[in-house]
Design a binder for these strands. Structure first.
Lengths: 346, 346
DNA sequence: ATTTTTGCCGGGAACGTTTGCGTAAATAAA
DNA sequence: TTTATTTACGCAAACGTTCCCGGCAAAAAT
């Protein structure tokens, strides 16, 4: 069943005018007499005329829609980011098309190709945790296609980038653990390939060094899928907890890592924070309701979405190729709760 | 900066052919000689030709994209549903465009108009909690535009509908509370306008009656925004808890209602389930990590998304107007945890 | 009275693609 | 050899819109 819409031709025919006149009348051109304009406006109002955006896109060579690629919309951080993106995009008359990579490189490539072929005007990307090869994006970028990276950026490409200060987030969290008296602080990290993983580990390391504690490689575990799979978290924690100098605190550097870590401890009846303290990067709205309530580093997700979108649309609408690319760094927020602070437990 | 893509014309010019020949060669038409086909295929492969979907849409009067309207993608139930929708849509070569109403009728209307003007081929809708007037949807529906409702359906329109057995979900949950010894069971419900609210309350009521307990209107509280606003939940709970015959158990009929209910109890140091038991509809992946772990009615969200999309695409691709509409009802799942069962607490 | 300007409108091309129709050359049938 | 058929391709219209280019009146300037 096709759905027949009213076109400018129908209006022209009904009113005995040409399509050009109708088009001009609708755009309020000075070349059209007030009476004709009035007739056209009234009639198109009456039959509920809406311009066909497909036809417009074809003519203008732009679709007024932007693509988003994230790993999971079910991830609080990304759904909040998307809300930020949406708020700006709709304001500026852009439509958003969301695609999920589910942390798979293959699906990311497929999505990029799909979106590019859908004639989107620009792309907001947070790469998957598997992504190493960037040809699928570089290919577009070289041809002048606007791309903005957020959160999980890639250094190899000259584009606008919006991230949170991951170094500071991890640094502050680690310092907090040290100041709370923990001495063996392990890090549960995401994929090695991701920028955020490196930055967060750097912050963790620096905080240890600044505190006179030593950084030990065996206290760092990577999870390729960023905690999406419970098994990889279980594995990593098994590795950490069976080693000599067992950690008394853990810094988890992603949402799923943090919650699956809790799940692991709960299963094994390991008490938080008595046996092991836990702090993690998370944008969940429920961290206060968990047992124990969770200390977290929170990212300004909504603002990241807004900022990224502003930069993207600015580039899309710029007359000449953008030369200088911005690299914005937003501040993270530290929330101290029971999982790292026994005194808060009643 | 516009992004110039390769067209069929470029291929034709380069190969000294006409656009029609190139088009036919690409579609493997029998009218084209094998040699020409080979040349065209190889060249278009080389320059990475992709057909312009905008031009195709204009010609075919269909965009191969479907719209989704939900209140919040941050809601686990909806993000899971969207994953289900996506899985089917992409399989069948459809693109999805997601719009959020944020439980606002006004934004819902705007979104519907926006999506309709974006030449989508069909719409998957879960109405906002404010929605009473359905003109924005009826208008499209009457003109033969394919619409499928899921979860929050409307009875006034003859379309495909996919829901969960809300009656049974609430019935089972309430029976479970009764069987666990609770006698004063209150219901924290969502917007009165929503189908799911009515159905769930009906199940709650029937379970009470079947158990020899009386249904009391003062034990039911409605939250127009479905728990999105903490204040409305706080208000409702204040009403429930200050009445004579204070409830010893609560059935919360939406995700946000459930979690905000917990938040309220936590703030006031009301113990669950010792002071009040709590069970709620929820698709959160974290209910096992909450304190106490939460008993829930879970909906098969992914499957709902899949099924709805299959029905929608079937209708879109049907040659003749669809006469008979399906009304599918999926089974909910009950999970008993600590918040209603003291024996599970260690 | 003639020329110039102004106001108002229509014709037609273009965006990228598909497709019905026409047709030249090549081949087969008469 | 003539006619019929097949093969392989091009032309042009169409989808809905905008916009350049004209054109033709009436009004204004000469």
């Amino acid at each position: 069943m096709k759905f027949e819409a009213v076109t400018i031709k129908d209006i022209a025919k009904a009113l005995g005018l040409s399509t050009s006149t109708v088009s001009r009348a609708l755009r309020d051109s000075y070349e059209i007499s007030p009476e004709t304009k009035k007739k056209v406006l009234e009639y198109s109002e009456k039959i509920n005329y809406r311009p066909n955006p497909i036809a417009l896109s074809l003519k203008e060579k732009r679709s007024r829609s932007i693509g988003i690629i994230v790993c999971e919309i079910a991830n609080s951080f990304f759904s909040q980011t998307i809300n930020g993106i949406e708020s700006i995009a709709y304001d500026k008359g852009y439509n958003v098309i969301i695609a999920q990579s589910h942390e798979s490189y293959e699906r990311e490539v497929l999505n990029v190709q799909y979106l590019a072929s859908r004639s989107i005007d620009g792309l907001l990307v947070s790469v998957s945790s598997e992504t190493q090869d960037l040809e699928h994006l570089r290919h577009l970028h070289e041809r002048g296609f606007p791309i903005v990276f957020f959160d999980r950026v890639v250094n190899e490409m000259q584009t606008h980038k919006v991230i949170v200060d991951n170094f500071k987030g991890a640094y502050d969290a680690t310092r907090h653990l040290v100041e709370s008296g923990y001495k063996n602080i392990a890090a549960l990290a995401g994929s090695e390939y991701l920028s955020i993983t490196k930055e967060r580990l750097d912050g963790y390391r620096k905080a240890l060094e600044d505190s006179g504690l030593s950084y030990r490689e065996d206290q760092v575990q990577y999870c390729l899928h960023g905690g999406m799979l419970y098994d990889e978290v279980e594995n990593s924690l098994n590795n950490l907890l069976t080693q000599p100098g067992k950690p008394d605190a853990i810094l988890a550097s992603a949402d799923k890592l943090t919650t699956n870590c809790m799940r692991y401890f709960k299963k094994r009846k390991i008490r938080i924070p008595d046996d092991v303290a836990l702090i993690g990067f998370s944008n969940l709205d429920l961290t206060d309701l968990l047992s124990p309530s969770l200390s977290v580093v929170r990212q300004p997700a909504f603002e990241m979405g807004q900022l990224s979108t502003e930069l993207l649309i600015q580039q899309i609408e710029s007359k000449r190729p953008v030369q200088s690319f911005e690299h914005r760094i937003l501040p993270p927020q530290l929330f101290i709760r029971e999982s790292t602070d026994k005194s808060l437990i009643d």
